[in-house]
Write a protein that binds this DNA or RNA. Structure first.
Length: 415
DNA sequence: ATTCTGACTTGTTCGAATTGTT
DNA sequence: AACAATTCGAACAAGTCAGAAT
């Protein structure tokens, strides 16, 4: 909460927090004035939470003021307390666990205009937690006086524990760390699948090019969507509920997100995943331009979906007919990896190390642009660093697509 | 067919750790 | 040594997508 003015100033955040806050006050016996007389708390703006803030500031200061030796001792103590939870045995092998802690109570910080931002995310009790563990393994004891919701022996799932969070009803899982065997294996499979796509991409591209003129509107929409996903690395775009931030992907694009500039320029302007703006002005295949014009034809108006005959599941079903396991997201992996690999091949092997690093970073940045990866410029730096826009891709921070380029490097220079 | 449930990946942000600077 | 700047990993919100339920 300390560094979160952005959230705290948001009226929706305040309203949601205050509703929950009032309910909790009521449930816990009501508020009292210093004389112990019951009082009503009616207005958020009149509440002063500073003492809580100051309390945490004090703890922080105390921690900071510790001597080096004290800090070291505190860390050792913390590490020792965590040690028993860091690893598990998985099919007889020791594996690192990712998030072994249950998420603590907090104010939900939904991104963008999330209708529930600021809501109190309540403490998770053992009675809400399902444990997934080997049939013969000793089940970890729940805290004194409590019991687990359920103990399962699911051999297929990759999670160790699971609960449902109260704000959105989302499932939360304790799983293995990214560098564990299972995660590494599935990451490997992901890239293998993207590599597999390389064998089919020509056929798929030819096919959707043809499909752009299909007289069946459903097929024409589908072909157009695949075109956009392939060419501009758009996400699939599942439908979203009322209780979520209003963001879109390809299949959920609305009338107002696409502007047509003859002869064949399209302007995309919409909020995508994490409410990050996707803005791009691009030239498209003339038939794609014509199609989008048809899909936007009256009586369609603002708020209506462009691909009204298309769902992500229909799209994925169609894609899987080209290749088992092919879905919309594979195109992102494929195109990101392909771009990276191409740029790395183009990279000159000569030059100083800093020069090579720069070329590598430039390549990485280009992939970030393709995928529309952005992050907020740090509050203090915002004004001086950037006048053009508030969000800028300053540094390469591609992680999920990195494995392939590391592979590419290791092939060039064995060991 | 459509909606719901559940499990998994993806991506941003935050805070801790590390490194650089005075 | 003290502080700022930068880097890195953990946290967790927000997606994707398959399969079950309606």
């Amino acid at each position: 909460m300390l560094n979160s003015t952005h959230n705290v100033e948001n009226p929706i955040f305040q309203k949601n927090f205050f509703n929950d806050f009032q309910a909790i006050i009521k449930k816990t016996g009501g508020a009292k004035d210093p004389q112990g007389k019951p009082i009503q708390i009616k207005e958020f703006s009149k509440c002063d939470f500073r003492t809580i803030f100051e309390h945490y500031e004090k703890l922080r200061a105390e921690k900071k003021a510790m001597s080096a030796a004290e800090k070291k001792a505190a860390k050792a103590e913390k590490d020792a307390a965590e040690a028993p939870y860091m690893y598990c045995m998985w099919d007889g092998r020791k594996q690192k666990v990712g998030n072994f802690r249950v998420e603590p109570p907090a104010l939900f910080r939904g991104r963008g205009e999330h209708p529930k931002t600021g809501t109190v995310k309540t403490r998770v009790m053992p009675e809400q937690i399902t444990i997934n563990i080997g049939k013969d393994a000793p089940v970890p004891a729940p805290p004194e006086g409590h019991r687990w919701k359920e103990v399962r022996h699911d051999q297929e799932g990759t999670w160790l524990a699971m609960w449902q969070e109260n704000v959105n009803g989302n499932y939360k899982y304790v799983m293995l760390a990214a560098n564990s065997d299972v995660k590494g294996q599935s990451d490997y499979k992901k890239f293998e699948k993207a590599r597999e796509l390389k064998k089919h991409i020509d056929r798929i591209r030819k096919d959707y090019k043809k499909g752009l003129k299909d007289e069946l509107m459903v097929n024409r929409q589908r072909a157009t969507a695949v075109y956009l996903i392939d060419q501009f690395a758009l996400r699939a775009g599942n439908e979203k509920g009322e209780d979520e931030a209003d963001t879109v992907g390809c299949c959920s694009l609305k009338f107002e997100h696409v502007t047509l500039k003859p002869p064949n320029t399209v302007v995309f302007d919409f909020l995508g995943k994490d409410s990050i703006r996707y803005y791009d002005e691009v030239e498209v295949d003339p038939q794609v331009f014509k199609n989008l014009k048809i899909f936007k034809k009256p009586p369609k108006k603002e708020g209506d979906e462009i691909f009204d005959r298309l769902t992500t599941s229909a799209l994925n079903k169609h894609l899987s007919s080209y290749m088992p396991g092919l879905t919309a997201k594979v195109f992102r992996t494929y195109n990101a990896s392909y771009t990276m690999a191409t740029l790395l091949k183009k990279m000159s092997a000569t030059g100083t190390i800093p020069e090579k690093v720069k070329q590598y970073n430039d390549a990485n940045r280009e992939v970030a642009i393709l995928c529309n990866h952005k992050r907020t410029v740090a509050a203090g730096h915002a004004d001086q660093m950037e006048k053009l826009s508030d969000r800028v891709s300053k540094q390469p921070f591609i992680t999920s697509y990195l494995i392939l380029d590391q592979l590419a490097i290791s092939r060039k220079q064995p060991i």
